[in-house]
């Protein structure tokens, strides 16, 4: 898959995954890699960028019997950005599906 394309999708995924509650990095990585293949290491630079751009805020929280974990919270700005990305994705997804259906469909002509 095209790298730039995948980057955009990853961005959408981490934003959506934090929509209902704060998550720590490892958790986010696992939730995504359960669904499709990614080089897991690339998620962290992405999280850093989104944090720098103000879409996430982070805090450290103790984990059970270990050093603290870094949690990511979706900011107000991040939520608005996520919503616009989801909207874009839906249009894109529907469009591609339609093209695939029309291209491969066996409707008699």
């Amino acid at each position: 898959m095209n790298a730039q394309f995948k980057k955009g999708i990853l961005e959408l995924c981490v934003l959506v995954l934090t929509a209902k509650g704060d998550k720590y990095g490892y958790e986010l990585v696992q939730m995504i890699s359960e669904k499709f293949f990614i080089a897991e290491g690339t998620v962290y630079p992405l999280l850093r960028r989104l944090t720098k751009e103000g879409y996430f805020s982070t805090y450290l929280k103790e984990s059970t019997g270990g050093p603290p974990r870094k949690y990511y919270t979706l900011t107000e700005e991040g939520r608005a950005y996520m919503e616009s990305l989801v909207c874009e994705w839906n249009t894109f997804y529907e469009g591609v599906n339609l093209i695939v259906k029309e291209g491969l469909g066996d409707h008699a002509e």
Partner: peptide
């Protein structure tokens, strides 16, 4: 292994850093 190449990660980090 599932994290991927450190080189690739570093490349990613640096490109994000430069964008910023």
């Amino acid at each position: 292994v599932s994290l991927g190449q450190p080189q690739a990660i570093a490349r990613e980090v640096k490109s994000e850093f430069r964008v910023k």
